[in-house]
Design a protein around this nucleic acid. Structure first.
Lengths: 145, 145
DNA sequence: CTTGAAAACGTACGGAA
DNA sequence: TTCCGTACGTTTTCAAG
């Protein structure tokens, strides 16, 4: 991939609403040229979508936590993401190599909600859990060069 | 906060480029009414920004990892986020309550890059590290209702 | 919240380097 | 190919009611 495309990705990661006009000025291309490049980046799947960043604390979910899960039954099928997909408190789900099998990132309103969520996760997925509470977020989802 | 604002947040989290026209149709408001609401949500800091989601694997950083860090000196000042802010491989930095003090989420191209990054983090911050490699991302930064 | 009007933007297409 | 200019419809934006 090319230098200008990288720059476009960086700019759009930083401000997904930047106009093609401004993208053009920033890259030294015409509006239509950047437009074509962005469309191509979308088609090739390099840009997977656009989203707004929400202040979840202000939006009613001030408590963030990581839940690491370990299956009770080592022979159990690895379909945790599917089984947990409907749990809206779960923001992210990674399969990992390490002490545990999966890591979930969750957002809830109160400790009581976290407790209830943990109970749900444990019974839905038949796993043991280890929870790490987030005290503060220094930065999150920074655009990466 | 109100039901319609919640809906707007959800829609924009899902598609940060949705037009005010479409937001209006989805919420039953006029274009300018949603426009005003969105601007107010931005001013109040509920919407902190807009971004494009990048396929980092395709963009040259296929390897994601979590690095948990523990200070060697328990009396050391808690300025790790600042000290590490210039390290572009670090996408997120959380202060946590648990076995460790901070969790970093990083993206690199190769295991060798991860090795070099770990060395940098250890010396820059005078910490010990525990690394968890991400095998696959089931979902990440899902919009939360 | 609505209307309304001007400016800016997205988008498609033909042609040039 | 990739890029540029033009042209048209749509969207954004900002008053004022």
């Amino acid at each position: 991939m090319e230098k200008i495309d990288r720059k476009i990705l960086r700019l759009l990661a930083d401000d997904g609403r930047m106009s093609y006009t401004d993208l053009g000025k920033a890259t030294g291309l015409s509006t239509s040229a950047v437009h074509q490049r962005v469309k191509r980046l979308e088609e090739r799947g390099l840009i997977t979508g656009y989203g707004a960043s929400i202040d979840h604390a202000q939006a009613g979910r001030p408590l963030t936590a990581f839940i690491s899960i370990t299956p009770f039954d080592p022979a159990a099928p690895d379909d945790y993401p599917d089984r947990l997909a409907d749990v809206e408190e779960i923001e992210s789900c990674w399969s990992v190599a390490g002490d545990e099998s999966y890591i979930l990132k969750v957002r809830v309103a109160t400790p009581a909600d976290l407790e209830a969520l943990l109970a749900r996760v444990r019974t839905m997925a038949n796993v043991s859990t280890r929870t790490t509470i987030v005290l503060s977020t220094a930065y999150e989802n920074r655009p990466i060069g």
